[in-house]
């Protein structure tokens, strides 16, 4: 294929563990679409929630070490499929760009200059870059049986003056993307509501409440699958359905797919290749769907 995209890849910690199917499906789909992903050398944790809620200097330094690593490798753009990593990386880039004193401080900590030429993309932006035509041409399986609730959550969109990505209250980019596969996006109300994020372990009660509201709204609007772009959202919406079921025995389960898994299915890969068998709530396409 000509005009193949080459991009850096910042996997993030979840992708090596709890969200390994997100990594697996992204790599498979990228390969199928002729996109060459280069991992950032010796990347470290972006600092996630725990750094920015306790020490803003630490948070910026941890995120920027990765940007500097990518910079040294000569990467000009890279995808961070985890919405939380994406957010930490672009926010720290932005902060160091507009506040020279902060930039100086972080450069001293890292003992390295920050040039900031690396453009960080989220997962939806990666597919936009690959091109709708290219994705559409590669589709071999019509996913018309799927009524999908696209869930954006928080960190893909906000803060909108830094992400410059979609509409912060009424986003539509994921819907546009999944339409290419024949899947039907449902109109629903909770696509930018928070699932409770990093409270998953310390305040599971909050996550159970918030995630239940989100899942219920999707089901009430006719969804038979949810689509997400963040490992933290996936943990809360998929894995936590076990705890939700315990608390609310009448809870109606709904499977939760990563965006890359849904696209992978349309490109003809099976559930196992994409790691969908690793989810808590089981998902399989109907066998008769051609």
């Amino acid at each position: 294929m000509e005009n193949n995209l080459k991009a850096g890849y910042f996997p993030g910690c979840s992708q090596t563990g709890t969200a390994r199917e997100y990594d697996l499906s992204l790599r498979s789909v990228a390969e199928k679409l002729g996109t060459e992903l280069t991992d950032v050398d010796d990347w470290n944790c972006c600092g996630a929630t725990s750094a920015h809620v306790t020490n803003h200097t630490l948070a910026n330094a941890l995120a920027m070490r990765n940007i500097v690593q990518a910079e040294k490798q000569g990467l000009t753009e890279m995808v961070a499929p985890c919405a939380a990593c994406y957010n930490r990386l672009i926010v720290s880039q932005h902060e160091t760009q507009i506040h020279p004193e902060l930039k100086k401080e972080i450069e001293a900590i890292l003992d390295s200059k920050i040039e900031n030429p690396v453009q960080v993309m989220n997962i939806v932006e990666l597919f936009t870059k690959i091109g709708a035509d290219k994705v559409k041409q590669a589709v071999v399986k019509d996913l018309k049986e799927l009524n999908a609730a696209c869930y954006y959550g928080c960190l893909l969109l906000r803060p909108s003056d830094i992400t410059h990505f979609d509409d912060a209250e009424q986003p539509t980019s994921m819907e546009e993307l999944i339409k290419l596969t024949g899947a039907k996006p449902v109109e629903w109300n909770f696509k930018v509501e928070c699932c409770g994020a990093a409270h998953s372990i310390a305040r599971k009660d909050i996550v159970v409440d918030l995630s239940k509201k989100i899942l219920d709204d999707a089901v009430a609007h006719g969804a038979n699958v949810m689509v997400v772009a963040c490992p933290m959202c996936h943990t809360n919406l998929d894995m936590r359905q076990k705890a939700i079921k315990k608390e609310y025995p009448e809870h109606k389960e709904i499977p939760v797919l990563y965006l890359t898994e849904l696209i992978g299915l349309a490109l003809g890969m099976d559930e196992k290749e994409l790691g969908i068998n690793l989810h808590t709530v089981k998902f399989e396409l109907k066998k008769e769907t051609a």
Partner: peptide
């Protein structure tokens, strides 16, 4: 939870989520 819904909607463009980070710190 750092969801930044507040920061997005603030008519004064005050980043409340970032403010909460500083209060915790």
């Amino acid at each position: 939870a750092g969801c930044q819904t507040c920061s997005t909607r603030c008519p004064q463009e005050f980043d409340l989520a970032k403010f909460m980070d500083a209060v915790r710190e």
